[in-house]
Design a binder for these strands. Structure first.
Length: 504
RNA sequence: GGCGGUAUCGUCUAGGGGUUAGGACACAUGGUUCUCAACCAUGGAACCGGGGUUCGAAUCCCCGUACCGCUACCA
């Protein structure tokens, strides 16, 4: 087992910035935290990192929370549920940061920097041009405390910088990568308090993770280079760093970090396209993790039971929509029928408002559910997403006598077959699988036509299409819906209309 | 540029000093006395390159290459 199973109870956190939608890459980070917490009987904290007041919005925070809930990634402490270490929004923890910043200043671990943005940018550009590491020069480090205070009194804007020790190796043991070492010579003194008084990321995380007693920090690989700075801040504050685990990034098919131009990237979009949450969760978990025995289809709680951060892949993974689609099909197949009706209903309503014939949405409210339930088996297993279901089953409603007659005319023995079939089912009433088989058999005996030449015309007569779900499945659905909704002819009626040749 | 990370079928991955290098998605072919789809069967498909260590390297070490990240008063 991983180091996670030893020592104090696991406390992990997911700390999104509320600056937009929840990206699937971040959702995966949240998921891995959740898996560790649930697998170890630990605690998952939701912390909102909204120190970037320019871009953070409450709407985004609400959206992220909604997406996490939809995915089933529950948290134990957070801005909405509270917990023993409030508050859980960084914007509400400013006093805490000020306090710790003061400590660093007082102990000589931080100093005021008065350099202007333009000045900094010039130096940066110059360093880059000279092929030198573009780190902060440390110019203000030499300022005396008294002089700095005087300039601040005078109203000069200043940022607080953390002192990076000279010539030292900083090593931390990454749970997924093993020991990682950085030398301090490549790090400039990072800003920990911006000139507007707000805490900078590298400082706020340290204070928060320490104060919230976080034991494991599981986050994206993009933070790995920040980690040594944070370790140094822990040290300066006399705090013990948590255990780190850095997850590789999620890439698009072109091997570039997954972004909008690759299509859907936010959890929200996947939901809108008709993916089931359990499919997305299962897929995301397998992006970088595997239980090791080839098992792939697993419920979230089972994955949690088997999850081990140490088994997480070191390399970046390409997001494969095909495999996600396969999983989604699977989860639609095993979904409880009642639940699937609830999930599919909104798509029938949304798409029914379009101008495409007698849509389900026009059904009497009480009957819509039953109609969708009757028709759902035709689509399960045949479509990738909930969104595609109405299109797949619309033939049940949209049967059109003229179209069917036209298709039938193209069949060599079309009329002959249908005439015989109609006679065979004349008094059968609603078709069942049994009576359908019997009528087809009779039609074959009468006409001598069999196989595809027999069934194809029947298919056209019943569905108005040349292909589609199995007739055995379609027939009961058509008849159930015909009984429920006005204007939908039953199977028997469809056949009779064509057989009597009244079309056009 | 510097620093850090990563490298097994097209993709996700298992394995890890001696294996016919395994599975899944996708793909191809066939089957299911009605078609797509689904389902089932079969098949093609991989250890980045070069050195070293070793009886033996895809596996350990080094170098190179490629890709990714960081190098912000964004997180």
């Amino acid at each position: 087992m991983s180091a996670a199973s030893t020592g104090a109870p696991v406390r992990v956190r997911f700390a999104p910035s509320p600056t937009g939608l929840l990206h699937v890459g971040n959702a995966r980070t949240a998921l891995f935290n959740w898996l560790l917490a649930r697998g170890q009987g630990g605690t998952l904290i939701l912390r909102i990192e909204d120190t970037d007041t320019e871009r953070s919005t409450r709407a985004s925070e609400d959206g992220i929370r909604g997406d996490l809930q939809w995915l089933g990634l529950t948290w134990d402490e957070g801005p909405d549920v509270g917990g023993p270490y409030p508050p859980y929004r960084q914007s509400e923890r400013l006093d805490l940061y000020a306090d710790y910043a003061r400590r660093l200043l007082d102990t000589g671990h931080a100093y005021w920097c008065f350099c202007s943005a333009e000045q900094l940018e010039r130096e940066r550009a110059a360093a880059l041009a000279a092929s030198a590491p573009p780190k902060y020069s440390g110019r203000c480090r030499g300022l005396s405390r008294a002089e700095a205070e005087a300039r601040r009194e005078a109203g000069e804007p200043a940022a607080l910088r953390f002192v990076i020790p000279v010539d030292r190796d900083v090593t931390f043991d990454d749970l997924v990568r093993g020991p990682v070492t950085f030398h301090t010579s490549v790090m400039g003194d990072p800003v920990i308090v911006r000139s507007d008084g707000g805490p900078a990321y590298n400082f706020a995380v340290v204070v928060d993770d320490a104060l919230m007693a976080v034991t494991h920090v599981i986050r994206g690989e993009d933070h790995i280079s920040n980690t040594p700075r944070q370790v140094l801040i822990y040290e300066a504050l006399g705090l013990t760093p948590p255990t780190f685990a850095h997850l590789s990034l999620v890439l698009g098919p072109d091997h570039a970090p997954l972004s909008k131009r690759h299509g859907a990237t936010s959890v929200n979009e996947f939901r809108a396209r008709g993916y089931l949450p359990e499919a997305l969760v299962n897929y995301l978990a397998l992006l970088g993790w595997s239980p090791g025995d080839g098992e792939e289809l697993m419920a979230a709680d089972e994955m949690a039971r088997r999850f081990d951060v140490a088994r997480v892949s070191h390399s970046a993974a390409v997001f494969d929509t095909d495999k996600l689609a396969w999983m989604n099909r699977h989860y639609m197949k095993v979904c409880d029928p009642e639940r699937l009706v609830d999930l599919a209903l909104p798509w029938f309503i949304a798409q029914g408002t379009a101008d495409r014939g007698p849509a389900f949405a026009k059904a009497p409210a009480g009957k819509l559910r039953e109609a969708v339930a009757a028709v759902l088996p035709l689509a399960v297993g045949a479509v990738d997403r909930l969104e595609e279901i109405p299109e797949r089953v619309k033939f049940v409603l949209e049967w059109n006598q003229a179209d069917a007659a036209r298709l039938l005319a193209a069949e060599p023995d079309g009329l002959t077959v249908i005439a015989a079939f109609a006679e065979a089912i004349a008094d059968a009433g609603p078709l069942t699988r049994e009576s359908f088989r019997a009528a087809a058999t009779k039609a074959r005996e009468v006409t001598g036509i069999k196989g595809k030449a027999l069934f194809h015309p029947i298919r056209v007569a019943l569905t108005g299409h040349e292909s589609g779900p199995e007739l055995d499945l379609a027939i009961p659905a058509i008849d159930v819906v015909a009984g429920l909704l006005d204007g939908v002819p039953s199977c028997a009626v469809r056949v009779r209309l064509l057989a009597t040749g009244t079309a056009d």
